[in-house]
């Protein structure tokens, strides 16, 4: 039995080092990370990874759907928009801020919590000596 247990454990650990990341697409309409095709558990985990290791996703084109959240900030006097998704237990939420391409007024946006689909390039920007991440030049549909 000892031999079997040790062999099984070794195989399992080897499995962890196999494989690689999903390759990027190409062309003008390329989508590198399509969150709309993933299950809710997968979406939450992938967005968690995007938030925790953003450097791995810089420059990638992301498509995601979720609920629109609106954050007016008195400090910067700006309104921030984010696409929010919840995990399977519905107790945790992850979201990504996006910048709708073109000129838009707040009235152009749908109501908060509307289900939206956003496609944009994951990028960083600096504000008040802090680095933030968002989807720039995003196309939004709802």
């Amino acid at each position: 039995m000892k031999k079997h247990i040790i062999t099984a454990t070794a195989c399992i650990i080897l499995l962890a080092s196999c494989g690689g990341d999903i390759g990027s697409g190409s062309g003008a309409n390329r989508i590198d990370v399509d969150l709309t095709r993933l299950s809710s558990t997968m979406v939450y985990s992938e967005v968690y990874n995007m938030v925790s290791t953003p450097e791995d996703y810089i420059g990638k084109v992301i498509r995601m759907d979720g609920n629109l959240n609106i954050y007016p900030s008195e400090e910067t006097n700006k309104i921030y928009y984010a696409c929010i998704i919840a995990d399977a237990t519905a107790c945790c939420q992850q979201g990504i801020e996006f910048e709708w391409e073109g000129e838009h007024t707040p009235s152009d946006y749908p109501e908060e919590n509307t289900l939206i689909t956003v496609v944009g390039t994951f990028d960083s920007y600096n504000e008040d000596d802090m680095t933030y991440y968002h989807l720039r030049d995003a196309k939004m549909s709802y």
Binding site: I5, A8, T9, I12, I13, L15, A16, C18, G19, G20, D21, I22, R37, L38, M42, S45, E46, N49
Partner: peptide, 21 residues
């Protein structure tokens, strides 16, 4: 197979199996 291409899914499977064992 698409999901298995994600590193975090493979990590989860390996760690999950080890913990279960």
């Amino acid at each position: 197979f698409v999901y298995l291409a994600y590193p975090f899914v493979r990590y989860a499977l390996v760690v999950g199996v080890l913990i279960a064992l």
